[in-house]
Design a protein around this nucleic acid. Structure first.
Lengths: 344, 344
DNA sequence: ATATTTTAGGCAATCGATTGCATTTATCAA
DNA sequence: TTGATAAATGCAATCGATTGCCTAAAATAT
């Protein structure tokens, strides 16, 4: 295994009888170098197959042009799309993206964040795990003057940049739509209330009902139904009520909505006629179920781009006062057949 | 913006009146250090909020415990799952994962690979872009003695580790299944033949037909149908043939199969009775279409884990002769309603 | 009590690129 | 022709951690 050493600027310098500093200047396109020399260095570097050692450069410059990302799961539609959008922006800027997944576990989240701090990344982008714990690890990021951008699931009390969906708004619009379609007993599938996104969605649900003068009935609010199976289970119980709902808003996810739909289909309850169903996230599959599922689009790729742009814009004119800036992405209701009783 | 300097080993050394080397030894758990001293250093480091500077360490040690990944699209089901599986393994080993997407463009792939080489990562994991070009960039990786693991879509002529699905096998099994279900004119939707995975699937299709004595009919093989739209278009044309197929194997993707299904549904052609449909990849949605779609599972998360394990195993007992090792992941046919005419 | 081995810790070079400052060379003005 | 200025290049320190080599002290053997 012949380990051919990498070419360094010293190798180039020696070959050209120059100082390493000149080579460095030529490569970094400094203006303190003669045009001819620069051309010569560039040519020689290419010939010698030179590739800069990023670690040396970063060490000396004291910064690492890298953005670290920590998400619960990489292979979840929403997150993988955010990452895709973010990567688009970071790549254009010549930045790298380092990715960790927390698997919804707090301990892994902490480990991931620390690893990124060690790398001295210039920014950490995070959506916190469902399993909440202390947020010392995030405070540390701030103390070290590493930019912190939280998105979607955030620690509210921490003063950082935040990029959020307006969850209350999304839920509100969904429920208003259900009411306008003539549904009168609208049930809610809730997510874990430790996460503010689920609290906000619940608020939106309540706000809409109140605005239209509907009662808020606790028997129609079902806690912790955020998978397909739990959604199905919740549906079975809700439909067994003496006075069952005529619509179910699965505010947790489209997967929960899918569980609802399956139960309805199995029981022969026609959707949308006898039961309206609305999900959250606009997963690709919602378009192709029968009937297709009404849901809320979160513009995930766009959200990723927004995060990236936020970082690079702040880098330039970093404003100490702006540390807490919050960007809101307005979600959009996607009306499909599972709630469409009336012609629009 | 007060920029409080990071604590370094020198700070700790000074505080304890020790040499930096001793601090380093204590932190790296060397055996050349007294147990008490070690404990003291560890305690002080924690108090002073010390975090190692990974760049300095990596520079000195000449390696970067990082695996770089280049895939066409991060947010594609198959790839995001492979990455998730890979991350699982790399994280356990304390390795980082750096991710780039090529967007199917050769130029971006080259840029991404070069960025990773600059970072001096210890391994590059790649699935090449559909837009093929020279593979000098990959040759360079090898020349620099960085491990290269190709997966799924590979440059065959390059001697590297490869982790593959047995595409021929998968396609073969699918077509045999169709034949056993009584389908007699089985059409094939092909992907770009520059990519070997699509060539192999075609081979599997042909092999199955031949084995059962069926003719290979070029009019039933439709090139480049690898999106939903192209799949639908292909189906329309195939069904307009004087002697149309009674089954369509969308070897390119489940999305193409979905396009087939939609056309069939629109035309009122019953599936699976009059038209059998089989996709490829086992996308989540194939389970919930009506009818559900028969497809081939690629064990993507498992594939990611295999890639990671391959790297770490080879690191230990690196065997020069083993440079070309190929791991095959055997795909599995998932039979669903879109091809099920007979009771099993 | 002396010689030998272990153990703990210090010194200083090193990884490769960058950069402030010093120096040389070229250019121009007087 | 000489002095002043600008341009190009060299020198050497630096970023922070690691590690080979060396020395002093402690532990063990003779």
């Amino acid at each position: 295994m012949k380990r051919q050493k990498r070419t360094t600027i010293y190798d180039i310098a020696q070959k050209l009888s120059l100082a390493a500093s000149s080579v460095s200047r030529a490569l970094s396109d400094s203006n303190k170098i003669n045009a001819e020399t620069k051309a010569l260095v560039l040519k020689t570097a290419a010939e010698m197959n030179y590739q800069q050692n990023a670690m040396a450069s970063n060490l000396r410059k004291g910064n690492n042009p890298t953005i670290g990302v920590v998400v619960p799961r990489i292979n979840q539609y929403f997150f993988s799309n955010v990452i895709a959008g973010l990567e688009e922006v970071t790549f254009k800027q010549g930045y790298n993206l380092v990715i960790c997944q927390s698997n919804e576990l707090h301990a892994r989240e902490v480990e991931g964040v620390n690893a990124l701090v060690n790398q001295n990344v210039s920014c950490i982008v995070i959506s916190i795990a469902a399993e909440k714990g202390s947020f010392d690890h995030l405070q540390q990021v701030l103390d070290r003057n590493i930019q912190l951008i939280q998105f979607d699931r955030v620690v509210e009390e921490l003063e950082t940049f935040k990029v959020l969906n307006n969850n209350k708004q999304g839920a509100y619009e969904a429920v208003v739509h259900l009411i306008e379609q003539g549904y009168r007993r609208i049930a809610l599938l809730e997510g874990p209330q430790e996460l503010h996104i689920f609290r906000e969605r619940k608020e939106g649900y309540i706000a809409a009902l109140q605005e239209y003068g509907f009662p808020i009935l606790s028997e129609l609010m079902y806690a912790n139904a955020w998978t397909k199976e739990l959604g199905a289970q919740a549906t079975t119980q809700l439909l067994d009520l003496p006075n069952p709902p005529d619509a179910i808003f699965a505010s947790t996810s489209d997967f929960a909505a899918l569980g609802v739909l399956e139960v309805a289909n199995n029981k022969g309850i026609p959707t949308p006629e006898a039961l309206g169903i609305c999900g959250y996230s606009n997963e690709p599959f919602t378009e192709i179920t029968s009937p297709s599922i009404t849901t809320i689009d979160q513009f995930s790729v766009e959200m990723g781009r927004k995060i990236g742009n936020l970082h690079f814009r702040e880098m330039e004119n970093f404003s100490p006062e702006g540390k807490t800036k919050t960007l809101n992405v307005r979600p959009k209701l996607i009306v499909r057949n599972s709630t469409l009783r009336k012609l629009q």
